[in-house]
């Protein structure tokens, strides 16, 4: 089973997480055209590559962003929404003394 690093709880098996879909910036609803809005809600950046995604750690109720290569399924970084990727270093997961991924 794949491992994923929750920025709050550390490295966990995938079974503890829910996939929340691609992270998408919402266009301004007041200024976007109907077509732009329809495109936002329906279309996806779906070619393989490094994507920003929402993931949810169920036992702790933590949403976070994972940057993942959807071709190799390799996770490059995980962090809380709005926190710079290196912000993860400030939290010390306590589950394991030693983290591995």
């Amino acid at each position: 089973m794949k491992l994923l690093n929750c920025p709050m709880n550390g490295t966990r098996p995938l079974s503890e997480f829910l996939f929340g879909g691609e992270f998408r910036e919402m266009p301004n609803p007041d200024t976007s055209s109907d077509l732009e809005w329809a495109s936002y809600v329906h279309y996806r950046d779906n070619a393989p590559g490094v994507k920003k995604e929402w993931w949810y750690h169920s036992p702790s109720g933590t949403w976070f962003i994972a940057e993942r290569n959807t071709l190799s399924d390799e996770v490059l970084a995980t962090y809380l929404y709005g926190k710079a990727p290196d912000a993860t270093k400030t939290t010390k997961p306590r589950a394991k003394k030693e983290q591995s991924e």
Partner: peptide, 15 residues
């Protein structure tokens, strides 16, 4: 998605 990307066509498909 790899083919539609070549012609810059947006779709709702996810793999």
């Amino acid at each position: 998605p790899r083919i539609t990307e070549m012609v810059d066509l947006k779709t709702p498909i996810v793999i």
